[in-house]
Structures are given as C-alpha cells and as structure tokens.
Design a binder for these strands. Structure first.
Lengths: 248, 248
DNA sequence: TCAAAAGTGTTTATTATACACCCATGA
DNA sequence: TCATGGGTGTATAATAAACACTTTTGA
C-alpha cells in the first residue's frame, strides 16, 4: 500500500471517530546514559522527524486521548503527563503538507495541545505503527530536523519542564525504580542546564527525606559501587506540594 | 427577539465563520479599591454568570481570537494576555445547556483554551452585547454562581497568575500608569494571598530599580499624600527576565 | 495632633555556594 | 594505587523576615 493510501485510510477513520481541528502533540522525555532523550518518529513519506501525536475521539476526554496516544506509542500506561501549552497558529502544517490532497483529514487546521511526558527509559518500547517507519529516542542535544512547528513545541516543553522542576516528581518518573545519587544529580543538571555542587546536592536531597536505600547488588566496577535508592513516594509527593525549594 | 432566536442567529454565524469544537475562555483581572476583580457576564436566558469567551475564526490565530474577544468586551486593545490551560473534558457544558435544541452551535463539545488577561481597571468599559444582559466586575472574594466549569477555570487562572507573579509584568498591566507604593503592595498581597512587610517590600521594590517618581498632584487627604510612581518599562522587562526573585 | 505614607537602621534566621577534607570500595 | 562514590565540616555571602524608629505631609 502506498503512503498516501495509508493516510487516506487513517483520514477516513479519523473523520468518523475524532473531533475535527483538535489535536495533541507529545514531548516524551527519557533519561539514559547521562543524557536527556526525547521520543521522535518519522512518518512514512516524510524526511523530517516529528513528535508523536494524534487526535481526540468524539467522546474522549482530552487527557485520556493523550494517554491513549502514548500508550500506543510506548506500551506503557500510568505515564506522567503534563499539559503545557496550546499551539494554535494558522498555517502550522501548511508548508509540510503542501503536496497532499485537500480532502484529507490531516490537511485541516489543527489547534494542538502540547503535553510533556516523563517516562522511565528502561521500561519503554518505542512502537512503529502503520503510518510511521521509525520511532526512536533522540538526544536532546543532537536533534534531527523536525517537521512543522515541532521544534518550537519541543523547546516550549523543555522550558515548562524546567519551570516545574521543583513541583513535579521528575526523579520518580524519569529514573528507574532504583537509581544512584550521581544519576539523580546528573538528571537535575541536565534539566537545569548547569553543574551542581556534589556535596551540597547530596546533603539537600537527603535533607528532603524522600530517598530510601535499596539493597541492590551493584554492577561490577573498578571502584566503589554506588548506593541504590528509590523514592518514598508519599514523602516525595508531600514535599512537592511545598516545592522542593527553588534556585540552585 | 427571544433569547433562543438570538442564539440561533449567533449559531448560524458561527457555523459559517468559526472552527467547530474550539473555544476560548478568558479570566480578565482588574484591580480596584484594594481588591482583585474579575470581569463576568450574564448571558440572556441564564441565571448564572460566566467568563467572557468566544470562538476562533477559521483563519484566525488562536491568540488573535482571544484579543478580538477581549477587545469587543472591554474596548481595549493591547491587553496583556497569557494562555494558561486547556479545558477538554467531555460534558463540560452538558448540564447547563440541557434544554437547548441539538442543532445549535453552542451544543457542540468544545475544547476551550483558557487565557488570563491583566487590564487597567480604570481604562476598561465593560460592554454588554446582544447575547448578554450584564457585564460587570466582580470581587474575587465575593463571586456569584458560575456556569459550567467556569469556577474551575477561574481558579486555575488565579493559580497560574500566582505562579507567574515574578515573571509577568503584573504591576504594569493591573495598575494605572501612575500608582502609589501602598497600591502596589496591596496588589502583591492580593495575588500572593498573604500580608507582606511594608518596609521590606518598599526596600525591595526600590532595589529592583524599576520605579520612576511621577510629578502628580495628589488627591486631597487628611494626611501625607502618597508619592506616585510609574514603571520604567525597559528596566521592568529586563528585571523580569531573571524573575523578580521569588518568595516573600 | 493625628493618620497615612515614606524611608532607614538593625538583628536574626535561613539558604546558597564554595572549598576542603575524610573514608569506602573493588579491580 | 587509582578512580569513583559517599559523607561531613565549615566559612562566607546573600536573602528573607521581623522589629523599631524617624520623618513628612495636610487637614
């Protein structure tokens, strides 16, 4: 089946079941090997990458649609999602879809709600579906060309994430269940975009009283193995209500 | 003409010129007589109040629509607007419009983008249009019953405003061109929801170096008349980039 | 003389930021 | 012995928060 046929099919389906003019775009963040990653996909027939997204069923809550879209794309449920901005400029997709036939659903003007998602990199399996040919993690510092206004959306998501760092359980959602102090620090440094003082960071984190030591056999190293921690979720959430203190 | 006839007319017009399923709701804040006000209106045929809102023309940017809606409602252009959240639950308006005929535009499901606006109370003239019978400032601490989920939206707007207080030029937009230090302090106290220490507040504000003394003949008082200030807009905006320091 | 406004001085507590050590661990 | 991680002590600077006092102004 040609790419266009695929999109024709998707178009018909969407006309029947989804709200016109309303869409969702998601910036899915993950943390791996000391860097921040974002889940991108390449649609068949496009040479640029894009954020995963989709449409809202006529009878579906907006948030529920975002969950559904991400579940299909990552296999994971219970994903941490945060709405951060609406993108409603006219002509957002005009240039990109110039060669498509007018009657296609995708050619409509869309008002897109941007969500960012925080996921545990290790538990996600990027899913390539019928209309995409690749779905991969890309390093935030080494992004490919993005389609439409997805560059803006992603940048806006990162800014929102940074602003929310003291009010969102980013550690809980971006790290594996058990993690080390250097990992946690690195994550904060990446999001805040600056180096933090190791000793003070450690003291501060322990001061919040949200970390629990885990008995985990460390991987073999040629030096002292790190201690593994997990979050005391209740205490974590409680601490977040007041904000984990700002500034660094 | 009956209320329903009016809405029928509006409905037809909207079907022709607006994007279906997409709407805007605005929380317009003003400051007057030591209290925070919000602009509410009462639609004909309803006994509850609501936030001003409207729809997006097929060829209009989302932000532009919000400006247009507010300009029509207040007569003011150059209004400070900030998008803060999307409200996309199903059945948001179901209960309220239960008795309306199904074919009306207004009976659709709407995904509504919430904006908050900061305006100078003294320069605004609330406009009653064809479909509303009242448009008035209401005290934030003494609100009437609100229709649909407008209570939520308003609450959410206030929270957003509070979070942005150090990053938005709230003084510039909520106060008249010339204002006094006690007014400015009162405004901060209202938004933050707590008393601030007068001496420290004054010192801090002067420390930001964003205030300019104005030569204004003070109103007659039986005590020392206050000094009038205005903002040095350039310095104000510059200071906001780094945030006007948090916490108080 | 009073009430509201303006302006400063000062103290205390808290926090951020740095620097400097110490020790532990496993190849 | 080295590299990395874990932990702590301490000193300084900056800031928040509180209290107090003085002065100004116009009725």
């Amino acid at each position: 089946m040609s790419h266009l046929d695929l999109f024709e099919r998707a178009s018909e389906l969407a006309y029947r079941s989804c709200l016109p003019h309303v869409s969702i775009d998601c910036a899915v963040f993950g943390f791996h090997e000391s860097s921040l990653k974002v889940l991108l996909l390449k649609m068949k027939g496009f040479d640029k990458w894009g954020l995963p997204g989709g449409y809202v069923k006529k009878d579906e809550n907006l948030d529920a649609a975002a969950y559904r879209i991400l579940k299909a794309r990552t296999g994971a449920s219970n994903i941490y999602l945060e709405q951060f901005r609406v993108f409603g400029q006219t002509g957002r997709s005009e240039h990109e879809l110039a060669h498509w036939p007018e009657h296609l659903w995708q050619k409509q003007r869309f008002i897109s709600t941007g969500y960012y998602a925080l996921v545990d990199y290790t538990t996600i399996i990027p899913v390539v579906d019928r209309i995409s040919e690749q779905c991969e993690w890309k390093d935030i510092d080494d992004l490919p060309d993005l389609m439409m206004d997805h560059q803006d959306i992603l940048h806006s998501a990162l800014t929102a994430l940074r602003r929310n760092i003291h009010y969102s359980p980013i550690g809980l959602n971006l790290l594996p269940k058990a993690f080390t102090m250097p990992q946690l620090q690195k994550l904060y440094e990446l999001i805040l975009g600056k180096k933090l003082h190791r000793g003070n960071f450690q003291r501060k984190m322990h001061g919040f009283d949200i970390l629990v030591k885990e008995d985990i056999v460390p991987v073999k190293t040629s030096h002292r193995p790190p201690i593994y921690y997990s979050f005391d979720i209740e205490k974590y959430n409680n601490a977040l209500k007041y904000g984990l203190r700002q500034e660094w």
